[in-house]
């Protein structure tokens, strides 16, 4: 079976003044469909950059990224946004919900940008919220929700369009232990349902939930 994600000699450089900083140095990896992968490493090791590239948010300086058979970085901006819309879901450390929208509207955001609009997007968003156990708080705005609840809304938003790949950047970094475990359990459930989950963390307890841990140091893979 082909891997869902194939990264081929990815390099990423930033220019800081006249200095070139290597965020990623020759990273190659494969992630299979249905895997639960944790990316670990100290801060500045390039974890977030790697996740941005996986999420089609950032371009590598060099290298190739295949999502299934599609060579991602030869695609147009429009196609990239379509990939982000339909095939990839994001979860962020600070939730990144739109503060003025209700939970339901936040979850509906990816549906709003679908190329082929659904006949009943609200029902789909509601179903996603029920799936993460927030059926009762749909019309609350983020400020009225606890951190754990906000992250559940974010998870619902990430999965509402039925993506293949769920990318989580320190999803539990802003949560206390019990809510952290609940979110991890939720991610575990989603993974059991067939979703491929990649999460970035520096919490080894979180990484322990994953099947596989990729360790990064100074932009290079040091353990897999």
């Amino acid at each position: 079976m082909r891997s869902l994600v194939t990264l081929d000699h990815i390099h990423k450089q930033h220019r800081l003044g006249d200095q070139i900083v290597h965020a990623l140095l020759d990273v190659s990896l494969k992630i299979d469909r249905g895997e639960f992968v944790a990316i670990m490493g100290p801060s500045g090791s390039g974890k977030s950059t790697l996740l941005s590239i996986l999420g089609c948010l950032d371009h590598p300086s060099r290298g190739r990224y295949l999502l299934d058979d599609e060579d991602v970085f030869v695609q147009s901006k429009v196609r990239l946004s379509e990939l982000r819309n339909r095939r990839i879901g994001f979860i962020f450390q600070n939730f990144n919900l739109l503060p003025r929208l209700t939970a339901l509207e936040n979850v509906g955001l990816p549906l709003f940008y679908r190329r082929e609009p659904l006949r009943n997007p609200t029902a789909r968003a509601r179903a996603a919220l029920e799936q993460v156990g927030l059926g009762g708080r749909m019309h609350h705005v983020p400020a009225q929700l606890s951190g754990g609840e906000q992250q559940r809304v974010a998870v619902a938003r990430a999965i509402v369009n039925g993506p293949d790949l769920l990318l989580a950047d320190e999803p539990t970094g802003a949560l206390d232990t019990s809510t952290r475990d609940a979110i991890l359990a939720l991610l575990g459930e989603l993974q059991c349902a067939g979703l491929t989950v990649v999460l970035v963390t520096h919490d080894s307890e979180v990484a322990a939930c994953a099947w596989r841990t990729i360790r990064l140091r100074d932009g290079a893979i040091v353990g897999n």
Binding site: E82, F90, N96, L109
Partner: peptide, 16 residues
């Protein structure tokens, strides 16, 4: 900028 970033991350095209 944050809102724009979130919208882009969830599939908004530049023209949107």
């Amino acid at each position: 900028i944050n809102e724009i970033g979130i919208r882009l991350a969830f599939g908004a095209r530049p023209q949107d």
